[in-house]
């Protein structure tokens, strides 16, 4: 059984040989590539802490078999900041207290980046909350999270026009 795959991870192309077909994208990132930003909360697709972008789309990496994603391009929270400058979503989470303990935060941030790229919510808090419902925050920082997403979306659309919702 050939368990080799090519992935582009945060812009870098990696040739990977798996030792086991059961490895999920989450376990590959965390346990084999040292990228521990994506978190393992429920490991069953219910909490969103493991959210990453695959080919620009946010997904739950815990329910993604790594070998099946051969040829994909992956962005994790480690790939967001440019040099010493935080991504607008990361900065907005700090500015709006969009977290308390921080465990869900990498997933929330990646989900928000995906949401903004999808261009469906505008600045309607109801639409933002609905589109973020796959990310659970047990500390209950939802108010700050919603504000952060709306502000980051606004800042990003100043530089890049959002496609019509």
């Amino acid at each position: 059984m050939n368990l080799s795959l090519t992935l582009t991870i945060n812009g870098e192309t990696r040739e990977i040989v798996l030792d086991d077909p059961r490895v999920t994208l989450l376990d590959l990132l965390r346990e084999r590539l040292g990228l521990t930003g994506a978190k393992k909360g429920c490991d069953r697709g219910q909490c969103g802490a493991c959210t990453i972008l695959v080919d620009g789309q946010r997904i739950n990496s815990c329910l993604a078999l790594a070998i099946s994603y051969h040829g994909s391009s992956i962005t994790t929270v480690e790939g967001l900041a440019q040099g010493g400058t935080l991504h607008p979503v990361q900065q907005a989470f700090i500015d709006h207290d969009g977290f308390q303990c921080g465990f869900c935060t990498p997933g929330q941030v990646m989900s928000a980046v995906g949401l903004i790229a999808e261009g469906q919510t505008g600045d309607d808090p109801e639409r933002v909350r609905e589109a973020m419902s796959g990310n659970i925050c047990r500390c209950g920082a939802y108010m700050g999270i919603t504000e952060a997403v709306i502000e980051a979306r606004g800042k990003m659309s100043e530089t890049k026009p959002e496609k019509a919702a």
């Binding site: 697709g45 969103g48 959210t51 695959v54 789309q57 946010r58 997904i59 739950n60 329910l63 993604a64 989900s111 995906g114 949401l115 999808e118 589109a131 973020m132 419902s133 796959g134 990310n135």
Partner: peptide
Amino acid sequence: GASAQLRNA
């Protein structure tokens, strides 16, 4: 149905 992440996958 489901969440945005699940609908994307």
